[in-house]
């Protein structure tokens, strides 16, 4: 599986959870907290569930709790995809 890019992650976020009024996903959001972007813990769960299915990767619940920003997700996922590549 190829790496998870920011564009793919944004597409997954939009598809799974849409976007809050007044939030622009177009800019640099890597370091922004999910809650500031309008995504609560359930939205993060939905997003990670989709990533697990698309990227055939298991993300344990304890790890999901630590994913606070899009940058966190990219790092977590790509660190674990690389060895298999």
């Amino acid at each position: 599986m190829s790496e998870l890019t920011m564009d793919s992650l944004k597409a997954i976020m939009l598809r799974c959870s849409g976007v809050e009024e007044g939030v622009d996903l177009g800019g640099d959001i890597a370091g922004q907290e999910f809650r500031d972007l309008g995504y609560d813990s359930l939205a993060v769960l939905e997003m990670t569930s989709q990533i697990q299915r698309e990227y055939q990767l298991e993300i344990p619940d304890e790890a999901i709790e630590e994913l606070n920003s899009p940058g966190d997700v990219l790092r977590y996922v790509n660190d674990r995809l690389t060895p298999a590549a």
Binding site: L14, S17, G18, E21
Partner: peptide, 8 residues
């Protein structure tokens, strides 16, 4: 309805 709310 904003899409964020629509999905859930």
């Amino acid at each position: 309805v904003p899409s964020r709310l629509l999905r859930e």
